[in-house]
Design a protein around this nucleic acid. Structure first.
Lengths: 235, 235
DNA sequence: AACGGATTTCTTGTATACAACATGCTTGAC
DNA sequence: GTCAAGCATGTTGTATACAAGAAATCCGTT
């Protein structure tokens, strides 16, 4: 199996990258914030070289905008862009489901069933964090079940990027139970080998439509990730 | 409109990146080739710093594999991975078509029609290069017509990565005329505002299925991009 | 002669020094 | 007083120097 992502945590630059990524997605670094190389290198106790590497990697992920000879700026997705990303994510998940319904192995089916059970327990206990973790596991298993390594990597990439927003979504009242029901529908379609049913179930599960849009808007506003000024964005 | 890709061609590293990318996709650098930093920097007349930047960017694009403390290696997709990428590409194009059928503007419809006409001329003249160029333009227009900037960026990324293989495909006998007919079907669906028809047409247009798989295999073998040894890949 | 270990050499990862460019301020003219 | 040009400052891009890890070689032992 060819590797689609390089191994991490070996070079110091990777640590800086993760730290910065965390600071960005948590909103500690607001949108538009200028990322000065020397001060950040100072803060992380390293030189500019690994820090620049981290900034370029973040730029490749879309979390940072890199303007030549001007510097790096934090770039949080606006509401519009977030809807766009969810639109693509829904389709990628749908494809995963369609393929997985045909290709899933018994072992993966068992693992999927186990996560659904774990989700049920989390809902019963009202444990948001537990549910969040099991929910993520469920989706990653679906990606893997699709039997397409490239697709799994791409879906995982986008999933990771949408992570913070998804988490906000789950906090909304009743969303957890609804999500669990949708997981059951997906699992059922995979067990019965119904590709289109699995695709539709996953698409609807992820898509931002109807009332979900208002929920997303509300949680986005509350997240205040876009607290920074827009002045830095006029390239 | 938020920018999804940084402007290029400003720093010297970008030039190196493009040159290396060209050398890789043309097969001048075979699969598994080790990319020594000092010798390459020497060859490009620059220091190791911009060259390392280029290598990291190429690693993000998936064209090279970066093993910590070991070096960078050219990584051409194997046949399996190529099929995987086409599977995803087909779905992204289908999504573009579905959305474009609802969102396309008259101006873009006109541009699409113009490229189809240009494609017809190219087919009549037997001009592969011209057809290739217009074909690419057609697809990029579809991406744009979907009205989802993020999707357009992702589709464009994958399209670019599959570029060399698509080109080989078009060289096959009769493929150009068939491709043109499929473009007509897509355009018709977009004009009439039939989302599912457009999606299906584009999916079938891109997907590797039936006889196309054998064609792909044949052209892949002939491309000899995988001429290098596999020894370097055992990480 | 074959194997194991230590050393040596080469390569990558990191730090620092230098250069080019952008920006902001000062100063001078109108 | 306002605007513009030039200078000063600071930041990024690049080059070079240094450190640490990996690989190959050489030597000693069995």
């Amino acid at each position: 199996m060819p590797p689609y992502a390089a191994p991490m945590h070996n070079r110091r630059a990777d640590g800086v990258r993760e730290a910065l990524e965390q600071m960005i997605v948590t909103g500690e670094l607001p949108d538009g914030e200028r990322l000065d190389e020397v001060s950040l290198a100072d803060r992380f106790g390293c030189s500019r070289t690994p820090l620049r590497e981290a900034l370029h990697a973040l730029a490749a992920s879309g979390l940072v905008q890199l303007i030549p000879r001007r510097g790096a700026f934090v770039r949080h997705p606006g509401l519009e862009e977030m809807v766009e990303m969810f639109e693509v994510m829904a389709e990628l998940e749908a494809l995963c489901g369609r393929l997985a319904a045909r290709r899933v192995t018994p072992a993966l089916l068992g693992a999927l069933q186990a996560t659904v059970i774990a989700c049920e327990e989390a809902v019963a206990a009202g444990d948001h964090d537990r549910y969040y973790a099991e929910n993520e596991r469920f989706h990653l298993l679906v990606y893997e079940a699709a039997g397409n390594g490239f697709l799994a990597a791409e879906a995982g990439r986008l999933h990771r990027r949408l992570k913070p927003f998804r988490r906000l979504q789950l906090r909304l009242r009743g969303r957890m139970a609804q999500s669990l029901a949708e997981h059951r529908t997906v699992l059922s379609a995979l067990q019965d080998g119904r590709p289109e049913a699995a695709a539709e179930a996953l698409r609807d599960h992820v898509a931002v439509q109807g009332g979900k849009f208002n929920d997303l808007m509300a949680s986005y506003r509350r997240s205040s990730l876009h607290a920074g000024s827009e002045t830095a964005l006029r390239a």
